[in-house]
C-alpha cells in the first residue's frame, strides 16, 4: 500500500503556493494536515500529479477574534482549535464537535481547512461552519473570494473550490448573547465518522425557541442549513422539526440506510434541543 508517484512542492510563501497551484491546475493537490489525503494516497485512491505542501507558509494557522468575527486559519490544527480559548468563547460548537473528530494524533496534524476542503459528508466541521453561517475565504493567483459556507459544500467530496484555489481562513460570526450551541453525534465508535451528526445553534425566548440554525453531517450528501426544520422548530417545537426531517434526502448505505439516518437525525435533534450550552 504505497502511493503512486507525485511531484512535491513546498512553497514558503502564499504567493508561491498560489502560483504553483495555478500552474498545476487539476493535477495539483494541496497537502495540509494530510490526515485524509495521505490515506487516500497510500491506497492509490487519490493520484495527484503534484502535492503542494502548505505547511511552511506563515500565518495560515492563526486564530483571532475581532469585531465579532472569529477567524481561523485554514491550517489551524484540530488540536489547536480545540485548545483555543477564543474558539471556546466565540464558537463553542466547534470545540464540542472536535471531541468527536478522530483521535489525538490525528487532531495534532489534521486541519480545519483540510476538513472543509475534503467535504466528506460524514465529517463534523463542514456541518459546524454551515450551522454557524461562516464564510470561507479562498485565494488564488487571481485574487481572493469569499464563499458562504451554505454555498460551499456541493456534494460528496465536492466543494466550491476552483482549481488553483486554496482556503485561507474561515470567518465565523461569534456567538451572540442569548444564543447557545450544541453538537450531537452517533458513530459506531467514538472518533469514527458520523452515522449522523447534528450541529445546532439556538436562541430562546424564555423556554420558547426563537431562532434556530441546524446543519447535519452523515445524513445528506452535502451538509446544508436545514431551513425547513429550523422554521418548524421555531413555530411548532421539536416534534414539528422532527417531522420536517422526514423530508431529508438521506444517503443510503450497506450498513446504514437512509431511513436509519433520518431516524438518527431526529434522535439527535431531540437530544440537542435541551442540552445546548
Amino acid at each position: 500500500m504505497k502511493p503512486a508517484r507525485f511531484d512535491y512542492a513546498r512553497p514558503e510563501t502564499l504567493s508561491d503556493a498560489l502560483a504553483i497551484l495555478a500552474d498545476g491546475g487539476a493535477e495539483a493537490s494541496v497537502l495540509a494536515g494530510g490526515q485524509s489525503l495521505m490515506p487516500m494516497l497510500n491506497l492509490r485512491m487519490a493520484r495527484p500529479g503534484m502535492l503542494v505542501d502548505i505547511n511552511r507558509i506563515p500565518g495560515l494557522d492563526a486564530i483571532a477574534l475581532a469585531d465579532g468575527v472569529l477567524s481561523i486559519g485554514a491550517r489551524a490544527r484540530h488540536a489547536e482549535v480545540l485548545a483555543s480559548p477564543l474558539v471556546r468563547q466565540a464558537a463553542p460548537l466547534l470545540a464540542q464537535a472536535l471531541h468527536h473528530v478522530a483521535h489525538p494524533a490525528i487532531r495534532n496534524r489534521g486541519t480545519l481547512g483540510g476538513s472543509l476542503a475534503l467535504a466528506d459528508p460524514a465529517a463534523e466541521m463542514p456541518a459546524c461552519v454551515t450551522c454557524l453561517g461562516a464564510t470561507i475565504v479562498l485565494a488564488s493567483a487571481s485574487g481572493k473570494r469569499r464563499v458562504a459556507a451554505e454555498k460551499f459544500f456541493l456534494g460528496v467530496y465536492a466543494t466550491a473550490i476552483e482549481p488553483g484555489e486554496l482556503i485561507l481562513h474561515v470567518e465565523i460570526p461569534a456567538i451572540r448573547p442569548g444564543w447557545t450551541h450544541a453538537f450531537q453525534e452517533v458513530s459506531r465508535r467514538h472518533g469514527d465518522y458520523a452515522m449522523a451528526g447534528l450541529a445546532l445553534a439556538l436562541r430562546r425566548d424564555g423556554s420558547r425557541v426563537a431562532e434556530a440554525r441546524i446543519a447535519l453531517c452523515g445524513v445528506e450528501s452535502a451538509t446544508r442549513r436545514q431551513a425547513e426544520a429550523e422554521a418548524a422548530l421555531v413555530s411548532g417545537g421539536v416534534g414539528a422539526a422532527c417531522q420536517m426531517l422526514g423530508g431529508l434526502d438521506a444517503m443510503g448505505g450497506d450498513e446504514v440506510t437512509a431511513a436509519h439516518r433520518i431516524h438518527l437525525a431526529r434522535v439527535l435533534l431531540r437530544r440537542a434541543v435541551g442540552t445546548e450550552d
Binding site: V186, R188, M195, E255, V256, T257, A259, H260, H263
Partner: peptide, 17 residues
C-alpha cells in the same frame, strides 16, 4: 449486534431499512 440489528429488533427500523 450492530445498531441496525438493535433498531430492527426494537421495531424502530423495518427489516428492509
Amino acid at each position: 449486534i450492530t445498531p441496525t440489528v438493535i433498531l430492527r429488533a426494537l421495531g424502530t427500523l423495518e427489516a428492509s431499512e
